[in-house]
Structure formats: C-alpha cells, structure tokens
Computed example of a mutant assay.
Amino acid sequence: MNMQNAQAVVIGQVVSTVLYNRGRGVVFAIHGEQKPASVGSLSGVVSYGGNATFDIAFECGKISRALPESILHGRQWSIFPEIKTAEEVQHVVDHAMAEEHREAEKHEAEEQQYRAECQRFKTAPEYSALSQDKKGAVQVTGNIRKELKAKFPGVKFSVRKRSYDSISVNWTDGPTEEQVREITVKYRDSYFDGMQDMSVSCSSPFNEIYGGVGYVFIDRDYSDAMKQQAIGILMIKYDHLLDGEDISVARYNTGELWRIRQDYFGHGHGIHGEINKILAVITA
C-alpha cells in the first residue's frame, strides 16, 4: 500500500507510539529530505520508503533518535496536526534530556556497584576454596560439591552435570532440601519466563566469579533405616486403620503403599504419602 496522502512532518509536530510505553512526543530535529509519498507497507506489517530520520522527545522522559521516516508513518505511530511552539518543544526536550542524563548516571552507579561486588566476591575469604575458572556447569558442579562437603561433613552428596546449563544434587538423609537450597540457589543465573517464552538472565556478581547455570535440581532420599523409623511411628499412630496390612520398607520402595487407605489419607497419597510426611518431620 502506497501512502500518497502522507504529509511532511515539521519541527514541533506532536506524535505518539504504542511501542515501549513511550506515548506522546514531539519532533525536535529532522535529518535529510522527507519523501512521505514513497512510504508504504507490505501486508500492513513491513514498512518501506522514505528518506529522512527524526529525533523525538517524549513527555515520559524518553528520546528516540534517527527514527526512519517509514517507521514514523507506520501503523504503530500516530502523527497529529498539533504543532508545539519552540518554547514548548524545548521544555519537552529539556525534560527528556534531564531524564536521560539521570538514567545514565543511575546505570553507571549500578555498574560501579556491580564491579565492586565482583571484586569483593573474588577476594571473599569464605569462598577461597572455590574455583574462579570460567568453565560453566563444570565449574558450578565442583563449587557446589566443595560447599556442601564443607557445610555438611559426613554426608555423601552426588553432584552431577546434567547438561550445559543444569546440575543435579542428590543425597540420603542428612540436611533438609531447604538447607541445601541455601547453598545452591546462588548458582542460578537465569530462569525461564513462561509469559515471554524465553530464558531471562538473573546473573549476579557471585555468578561472574564462581559460575552459574539455569537449573539446579535437588532431591533428598531417605535410607531404609529412616523409612523404617517413620513406618514405626505411623503404625503406632494409625494401627486402628491398618487392619493387619503389611506396611514394610520393601512395599514403600516399590510404591505399593500409595493405594493403601486413600479413602482416609487422600486420593493419590495413601499410606505412602503419610510416611513421606512423617519422614519430613523426623528429618527436619
């Protein structure tokens, strides 16, 4: 579609866009010769043509520079007949410039703080045993293993690389999942955002020095001795509900106990689910 009726834009022209929450703005500079009659679009999506570019200051405090003429005349922009005076234009530009400067200073301060935190972590004595090599999941695997060994001596952990971006941690008895997660959570440097259908970075200064991955899976198991202890507690508490049913570690391990007394402990839970609850309590 060719936009034969498109008019040339002037300094002070009020425009607006739905993009990036910019809203209303004013054109304060035009670069090159305008050719609005050459502007068109393909299927109402891809814009083409034009020659000039435009600098626009927005009332929200943002600035767009060198916006192509084809984009300004596109579907996501509106051009209004209202023309601001030179003083009004300058007021909007000054406000936007001040906001731009403030944002730049804020960004620089955050960058300086980030770099300072990186340096602090690099020399932090509590992490002196950890690797600072840039080896991705391999580095994270080794560092988590070292931290867990130091924090929970005597507990055997299995810390394995599952993929380039994920680690799994498994152990029997010992600390709770919450206690282990206090160590592993700082190694996560990204997460999946279902709303955007993409991975989003949440990297920290700690990750810059000691590594990070997107996923750290933790899974605590229980020894047969601990399961037997939980079964003993269950049999004392609910003996009247068992009707001589064989409640054993072997049946727990094979998953048979899920179907026992679902009428009392809830569908999908049964005796197995109640044993899990007892295990969580006695091993907390």
Rank of each mutant, 00 (worst) to 15 (best):
E108F: 12
E111M: 06
R102D: 11
R102K: 12
M97I: 12
E87V: 02
A104C: 02
K84G: 07
A98M: 08
I79M: 07
Q90C: 11
S78R: 10
A104V: 02
I83C: 01
A98P: 05
F80H: 04
E88T: 03
A98D: 06
E100M: 02
H91Q: 06
A109R: 12
S78Y: 05
E105Y: 04
A98C: 04
Q76C: 06
V93W: 03
E82K: 07
A96G: 09
A104R: 11
E87L: 01
S78H: 04
A109W: 07
E100H: 00
F80G: 04
V89D: 02
E110A: 15
E82A: 09
E111S: 07
R102A: 13
K84C: 13
V93L: 09
A96Y: 08
A104T: 12
Q90W: 03
I83R: 03
H107F: 15
V93S: 01
E108V: 11
E110F: 10
V89K: 03
R102G: 10
E82L: 07
E105D: 13
K84F: 07
E108A: 14
H107R: 14
V93P: 06
I79G: 01
K84T: 07
E110P: 03
H107N: 14
S78I: 00
A104Q: 11
Q76F: 01
R102P: 03
E103F: 07
H107V: 14
V92R: 00
I83L: 00
P81L: 04
Q90L: 14
E111P: 04
E100F: 00
E105F: 06
E88S: 08
E87A: 13
E108T: 11
E110N: 13
E100P: 02
E100G: 10
M97R: 08
H91N: 12
H91V: 11
T85S: 10
F80V: 01
E100D: 01
W77P: 11
S78C: 11
E103L: 15
H95D: 14
E103Q: 10
T85Y: 08
R102V: 02
A86Y: 00
A109V: 15
A96T: 00
E88L: 03
W77V: 01
E99P: 01
W77M: 14
T85L: 08
E103C: 06
K106H: 12
Q90A: 13
V89M: 08
V92Y: 03
Q76N: 14
V93A: 08
A86C: 12
A98Y: 00
A86V: 00
V89W: 00
M97D: 13
I83W: 02
A98H: 08
S78P: 01
H101I: 09
E111T: 13
